[in-house]
């Protein structure tokens, strides 16, 4: 009985803590994608308002990158997949 009790719970807790660390979806600048298109994609994928999308698009254009979403890894990967499908440079980073 004793051998079964405690080790069964501990790793599960650790794994969960690791998964819950926030991740950031980052869109990176490139010289090809049109600014209007980038805004449209951000609206389509993340449901931003046109104003929010334009601010983020300008950040990508002027600073070379913008964090567009923060959350769990799995969902972040889904968003990056959608951004790649739209041919935008995007990556997933651990939040600092």
């Amino acid at each position: 009985m004793k051998a079964v009790e405690s080790p069964a719970h501990e790793p599960r807790t650790k794994a969960r803590a690791k998964t819950d660390k926030p991740w950031q979806v980052v869109v990176l600048d490139d010289p090809v994608n049109l600014m209007e298109y980038v805004s449209r994609i951000l609206i389509k994928i993340f449901g931003f308002s046109s104003e929010q999308a334009n601010v983020l698009m300008m950040a990508v254009h002027q600073q070379g990158r913008a964090i567009v979403w923060t959350g769990g890894r799995e969902k972040g990967e889904m968003y990056v997949n959608q951004l790649h499908s739209a041919q935008l440079n995007a990556t997933l980073e651990k939040a600092e």
Binding site: L28, V80, H84, Q87, N89, A90, T91, L92
Partner: peptide, 8 residues
């Protein structure tokens, strides 16, 4: 697709 994958 491979170029985009390099970002991950």
């Amino acid at each position: 697709s491979k170029r985009l994958a390099k970002l991950m």
